[in-house]
Design a protein around this nucleic acid. Sequence first.
DNA 1: CATCACGAAACTTAAATAGTTACGAGAATA
DNA 2: TATTCTCGTAACTATTTAAGTTTCGTGATG
Lengths: 139, 139
Amino acid sequence: MKRNSRLSLALHTLGHMAVNPRKMRTSAEIAEHAGTNPVVVRRVLGKLRQAGLLISEKGHAGGWQLAREPQEITLADIYLALDESLIATGRTEEPSRCSVEHALHQKVASVMADIEKSLIERLASTTIAEVGGAESGHL
Amino acid sequence: MKRNSRLSLALHTLGHMAVNPRKMRTSAEIAEHAGTNPVVVRRVLGKLRQAGLLISEKGHAGGWQLAREPQEITLADIYLALDESLIATGRTEEPSRCSVEHALHQKVASVMADIEKSLIERLASTTIAEVGGAESGHL
DNA sequence: CATCACGAAACTTAAATAGTTACGAGAATA
DNA sequence: TATTCTCGTAACTATTTAAGTTTCGTGATG
């Protein structure tokens, strides 16, 4: 797999779930379809479960399922659940006693914050039902 | 140094150059101020030279200087010169024979492209003269 | 011609992420 | 009850990317 594949994996998986919301899927099935490992799947989907987007169950009939209707889950929900900004802001930690650096950081951080907000708004306008639903006889 | 420090380094350096555009700076000086290595500085500033933002000269009085007036260099110029998108789009290469994945990728890529365009517009509205110029008696 | 600075290649180090192995806990089924 | 299936999690390895470092060549200045 490649970099930043967590969001891809999450979107892809929930897209399929939207097509067939009642089906219980195991992490092994999901992993095979996505070309990765069951543990990786559980790691990623675990965050979505924490965010209330998914439900997981153990045991024989266990697996993963949407926690609510596909029309009620947007791409922004998934993006936010993973809690990893796609907007790389250059890791801001130090107090930066250099005034030029400080001014720049203020400016760039402000732009980045706006951009991220805008990104989330854009993602919020699409639900997984729309993305997965283009096709209905799949998986 | 941290990750994605190239843009920070570039912005920081050109911010200072904007304050004092006639001064010739060596990569050693710049590196010390930025807390990094001269070779790293040359690597980053080299891309800005390729983009026509900086001029470098060898020899005794050599070093780095702005290629044009600070009012004529925007943050977008620097961002674009480095040619590294801050918008991580999850590396799209495979044809993706899965229709759900394809639909998702289309959607996300389209949003990301818009966002990046918007980011560049925002950065283009600020010049390094504005950022560095808040202060004049520095370096 | 000695020195200073960039240019670039090659290598090492460090950090982040994906992949893997392993094992415990809980739930369904025989 | 015992078995089996699945998630949950920890620990480890492998891979990738970027930064840092060393080194040497080139050109310009004094």
